[in-house]
Computed example of a mutant assay.
Amino acid sequence: MGRGRRDKVYLTVEDRENLEQISRNGYAPAKKILHARILLMCDEGKYSKRTWTDEEIAEALQVHRNTVGRIRQRFLQKGEKPALERQLRKTPPTPPKVDGSSEAHIIALCCADPPEGRAEWTIRLLTSELKQRQVITEISASTVWRTPKKNELRPWKTQRFCIPERDLARFVAEMEVVLDLYSTEPCEEEPLIAMDEASKQLLGEVYPPIAMQPGQDKKEDYHYEREGVQALFMFVDPHRGWRRVSSRDSRTRIDWAEEIRQLLDEDYPNARKVKLLSDNLNTHNIASLYEAFPAPEAHRLARRLEIYHTPRNGSWLNVAETELSVLSKQCLDRRIPSKDKLKEEIDAWQKSRNQNASKVIWRFSTSDARVKLKHLYPVFEQEE
């Protein structure tokens, strides 16, 4: 049909009223409302206020010009209802490429181990494997992706559990011992000391860094020289607000035993017994004292030491770990070139912290754990 000639539409009063009602009906399908507006604008009868061209109608309603022509022809040939309703497909829909059987294959592949030499399943790898196994000979990666997405399968993601189900009883038992320690009233004769270990790599500069200036950040070269590693021993008295940090060349049983001797004989010489809270490292036990000192000396130290261990997977229960984090952020988060420089910086940091008596206020109690961590308790008594 040319631009100059077109079959004209003449609407009656009843036709216009019906179409106007549909076009204003917010509950009608969007296609039906659009077709009603097209017919109203196509009307060239005496009740129409303006004659619109197909191009003007298409531009006004944001549709293609051919769409306007098809709606007009359908109205003239078949009437109002066929023109307003969506035209049915003449051919049956194409059957989906992924049926129940092939979807089960895709799910099984996602849940199985990937081929040798591959760390994980990717969508491309799944598509290639389906074709290779003749499950589906022609399929795109985007079509394959629909099945893992629908079934919430993420073969590239691995979640790691922190506490195995079979280990819950052991965890909560040891956790409550630690929580009870924190909630016990502080005693000068039996102070509670938390300890933890860390390491610091010593790094020297290859080229001197450029100091910061207004409008210019500090700059340092990407290259550096490795100057060794120092072991850090952190001892914290959370009630007193005292801590001591030592750096050593190693962290063997001998090193730990010597740190314990210093804790008992120099830091707390008047304490009848020291309650030491540490992690489960194999050097943190009485046997290390007997490996480092003669039996009488080891026995003397052991009688003044009561060791408690944080549960495995529960290092967050150790306040010394928190203090190490503070040390790292405030003091060690930079390049330190030598052991002497490291010792100077650590001594200055701990002096400042001890002068301020920065305490650790632990507020999480056993009763809190039984409420907030009740999912960890194998048998939990529900409130009536």
Score class of each variant (00 low, 15 high):
211 A>D: 14
260 I>M: 04
204 G>A: 05
261 R>W: 06
287 A>C: 14
285 N>E: 02
322 T>H: 05
235 F>D: 03
324 L>I: 11
232 L>Q: 03
268 Y>E: 07
317 L>C: 04
227 E>L: 14
269 P>T: 07
270 N>D: 11
256 W>G: 14
321 E>N: 07
216 Q>E: 11
225 E>K: 08
249 D>I: 11
249 D>H: 03
243 R>I: 12
236 V>P: 00
286 I>K: 04
218 K>H: 12
254 I>G: 09
261 R>C: 08
228 G>A: 01
310 T>S: 06
212 M>Y: 10
206 V>P: 01
205 E>F: 14
248 R>I: 09
239 H>D: 10
303 R>I: 06
245 V>Q: 00
211 A>I: 12
276 L>E: 05
214 P>G: 03
204 G>K: 08
237 D>K: 13
253 R>H: 05
266 E>A: 04
228 G>K: 07
318 N>G: 06
286 I>R: 14
268 Y>M: 02
252 T>L: 00
307 I>D: 00
220 E>W: 10
260 I>Q: 12
327 L>N: 01
239 H>T: 11
205 E>N: 12
233 F>C: 09
220 E>I: 11
313 N>V: 10
323 E>N: 01
316 W>Q: 11
268 Y>G: 05
272 R>W: 06
297 E>N: 06
280 N>P: 04
245 V>W: 02
